[in-house]
Nucleic acid binder design. Structure first.
Length: 115
DNA sequence: AATGTGACACAAT
DNA sequence: TATTGTGCCACAT
């Protein structure tokens, strides 16, 4: 039987990893992409989150995924732009000027933590 | 079928 | 140090 191509798998893979991000922690697109094997295709992770948008709010903590600089680049895609920052602060992550404070410290790398 | 767009990342200038 | 340009892969039109 022919199974579904890997395309679908990519999205699910992203969802899995994002879902594994501990509360109060954040990850980056590139880190996830690298972990999936598509090193450099961080954009696809972002796309996956957009596709996950309807899912995420209640299933996947997409607000814990930011760019490598700790900037909440995707907040604009939330129902409410401030929702992303609100949720992060609610989990103990301080956000200043749309950027995660101590991002380096809160950074959760699947390639290492999930090893 | 082909082109453009996109929640990024990195190298070069 | 900041800015610009290119690479990456999948989806939308």
């Amino acid at each position: 039987m022919k199974e579904k191509p890997d395309k679908r798998n990519f999205f699910e893979d992203v969802y899995q990893v994002v879902r594994l991000i501990p509360r109060g922690r954040v990850s980056s697109y590139g880190a996830i992409a690298s972990y999936l094997g598509s090193k450099g295709s961080a954009r696809m992770v972002g796309w996956a989150l957009i596709a996950a948008h309807p899912f995420s709010a209640s299933q996947i903590p997409t607000h814990r995924v930011v760019n490598r600089l700790g900037l909440l680049t995707g907040k604009q895609h939330f129902d409410v732009p401030s929702a992303m920052q609100e949720r992060l602060e609610q989990e103990g992550v301080r956000v200043q000027n749309d950027k995660v404070v101590d991002f380096d410290q809160l950074f959760w790398d699947p390639a290492k933590e999930l090893l």
